[in-house]
Amino acid sequence: MRRDSFAAYHPIVNFGYFVVVLAFSMIFMHPVFQGIALISAVTYSIVLNGIKAIRFNVLYMLPMLIILAAANPLFNHAGVTILFYMKDGNPVTLESILYGIASSCMLITVMVWFSCYNKVMTSDKFIYLFGRIIPALSLIFSMVLRFVPRFKQQIRVISVAQRSIGRDVTQGNVVHRARHGIRILSIMTTWAMENAIETADSMKARGYGLPGRTSFSLYRLDRRDQTMLITLAILIAAVLIGASAGENTIRYFPSIHMKDQSWLSAVVYTAYGLLCMLPAIISLVEELKWKFIISKT
């Protein structure tokens, strides 16, 4: 797997970043903001997943965007700028068309951001973050991740063994198959409980249950992470100031209304653009740095 530079930051940076950009892309419907968010999300997904992301975005996201945008005016007839009337007498308005495009853009952006989130926030990062809050929970997550694959493996072993005495789910008629399946699941339960005794012993033997349990992690909040957190904070503050000044919002119904553009809007746009493009910029800078270092040696 390609290692992404942004993903190498501390989990709290990764997680915080995604919470913020997801929230912003859902709240801010202003076209410039939407454009920035969509382009950044798609760019970062391509940085993360390469050619696979392009295929995914073009094959699934693009058609979805078009369908959703086209569907809205069919059902939503609010707005003052009437373009024409449909056969059933309902009006098709400019506002509803634009609103359809905007809301589908928002949906797609959120989905693409989530695909990036999945790639960056691996299970152990997630476990780590929540382990800080509730240590027992992180252990439970970790144990689930350990035992689910293990049970699947054991079901396979039992199923192969049963096949050799003609008792597998792939053998016999429908009734037999069902019966074999239930039997395998039932013995699986027994097996799991039986083996859990030894697991419990091993946990007890290593002091599980003593008061004051801590949680070990491989992550450290270093200076780079701190710089990053401060940068994020500044950018977020700038965007929020814009929000409070009404720069980020738009009114669609009954008629479209946005605040006039000013020097403040330019600042807010830049801040939001930087915020959304940050992971992609980091990846690019790191790559250039790497090439530079390599070329020197």
Partner: peptide, 9 residues
Amino acid sequence: NPDNQIVTD
């Protein structure tokens, strides 16, 4: 049993 003693992933 090596498998049963391991608790985490």
